[in-house]
Design a protein around this nucleic acid. Structure first.
Length: 470
DNA sequence: TCCCACTTTGC
DNA sequence: CAAAGTGGG
């Protein structure tokens, strides 16, 4: 079968608001040619990138439902299964030659290995007179957001202001699904042997369900988001991040839902705190685009390379496994391990604990998060870790060390979240659960704190202070 | 997207 | 004397 226009889907596993898919189908229609979709599977590469089983599992599931939806539109799908990005230029070329492909369409992907992959594939295809069409990056504002001086913003707030201005000036309607191309296709047998198990009870692998969740969230919860979002027991956050990371939902679909809801409720959509979170996503993505050393294991602030991280291996393991002796930290780390997801407030608490109190290299924490998160996304994860470690731009000032016990008392007042994930503490009262006495710890078979908060905090601040003197 | 030490207030 | 407020890191 001929596929003159091949759409290569990667982290954009959706039919709606997909620029590459949309434009390819328009072009094919105009030329009376055919569109097809290809998905590439690179397990060895993914494991080098610390992709979690949960995310790979969700990717497989989303691919499956996407393939079905495309088939009803008469658009055929294929899966190429290799080990690493290196093998893709040959594999893609072979596929294109087999299917008389003349054009390859895809949406821009950010991290450096992905960019090198795309360049290598394009170069090889161009040798065979196959044209490549790259669409802009998956952001709400895809174009460059620059300051008056024409430089990228390094601080979020001015970035956000400019971002809102640009947003007001452009057409933000999400792109429609491609038009049907002939009659529906029969189900084809594709290779899903690479799929992994994950909590599909929490995140159904279906872009239509993701879209429903988006609208339900906007309708019922968006208005109260800023008030409740910091409390991990409240079902107040969108929990859409896994779908955004894999592109089953596009950020502009989210914007559309926010605008619609705010309009209905007579609110100004520019004040939406959830929209601000989506702007952070854009912010970290544009940072990575303009400062590529962020993809190369480097901190934004170069002088922080001089910090002597303690990197104690026993402490690292205790943190990963949720047995640090700090109940809120352990509950959070167990939530991550068990569900593939962690509440955002707790990501800040556990990352601050890791980088400041354990004084462990933020890159090790970043990698571990990536290996567990179902919503792991390079730019946001890196940005968040560098924010916590105070090595990033517009990062938390280094002296702002989270006190895990205080955070616990403030955001999990009655210890309900702790009780859910650290059941050995379930019978403790609301006061002592945040920091049980030694006797209580023995009774519960729960460890003593692996670190002494006060001196650890002081040591971390002192280490950063020393940098200033150099 | 904070913490802490210190001061002031209010009973 | 505890709660609430303040300023500096």
């Amino acid at each position: 079968m001929r596929i003159e226009h091949l759409v290569w889907l990667r982290n954009d596993l959706r039919i709606l608001d997909n620029p590459a898919l949309h434009l390819a189908s328009i072009e094919a229609r105009a030329l009376k040619e055919k569109v097809g979709v290809i998905v590439t599977v690179t397990p060895t590469q993914w494991s080098e990138h610390n992709e979690s089983d949960a995310k790979i599992g969700l990717r497989a599931g989303l691919t499956k439902t996407l393939v079905k939806s495309l088939a009803t539109l008469g658009i055929p799908s294929h899966i190429i299964h290799v080990d690493t990005f290196k093998q893709l230029p040959d594999a893609m070329t072979e596929f294109c030659l087999e299917h008389d492909t003349k054009h390859l369409w895809f949406n821009h992907d950010l991290p450096i290995h992905e960019q090198q992959r795309d360049q290598a594939v394009c170069q090889k295809l161009q040798k065979h007179q196959i044209t490549t069409h790259i669409q802009p990056s998956d952001r709400i504002v895809p174009q460059a957001v620059f300051s008056q001086q024409g430089t990228p913003f390094k601080v979020f707030t001015p970035f956000f202001k400019r971002w809102l201005t640009l947003l007001a000036q452009q057409d933000i309607a999400p792109l429609p699904a491609p038009e049907p191309q002939g009659t529906p296709l029969p189900e084809s047998a594709l290779d899903y042997t690479w799929a992994k198990t994950f909590r599909d009870d929490l995140w159904p692998a279906d872009q239509d369900i993701a879209k429903q969740r988006l609208w339900l969230f906007c309708h019922h919860k968006e208005r109260h988001y800023s008030e409740h979002r910091d409390y991990p027991m409240q079902p107040a956050t969108s929990t859409l991040s896994p779908y955004l990371a894999l592109g089953a939902l596009g950020p502009r679909q989210c914007l559309e839902a926010i605008m619609y809801t705010c309009n209905q409720e007579d609110r100004d959509w520019r004040d939406s705190v959830w929209l601000k979170e989506l702007a952070w996503r854009d912010f970290y993505r544009q940072l990575m685009e303009h400062f590529p050393h962020l993809c190369m294991n480097q901190p934004f602030k170069a002088d922080t390379n001089l910090l002597r991280w303690r990197n104690n291996p026993d402490e690292f393991l205790a943190w990963c496994e949720g047995r640090t002796g700090f109940p809120i930290v352990d509950a959070a780390m167990r939530q991550l391990k068990q569900t593939g997801w962690m509440h955002n407030r707790l990501r800040m608490v556990t990352a601050s604990f890791f980088t400041k109190l354990l004084f462990a290299d933020w890159r090790k924490g970043e990698a571990y998060f990536m290996s567990q998160l179902i919503d792991g996304e390079f730019a946001a994860n890196n940005g968040g870790w560098q924010w916590s470690a105070s090595t990033g731009c517009d990062a938390a000032p280094y002296f702002r060390v989270f006190n895990p016990t205080r955070q616990s008392e403030t955001y999990d007042k009655n210890g309900e979240f702790i009780k859910r994930f650290v059941p050995e503490l379930a019978h403790l009262d609301a006061k002592s659960i945040h920091n049980p006495s030694s006797e209580q710890r023995i009774q519960c078979d729960y460890p003593e704190p692996i670190i002494d908060y006060k001196p650890a905090r002081q040591a971390a601040i002192a280490a950063f202070d020393e940098l200033k003197g150099l």
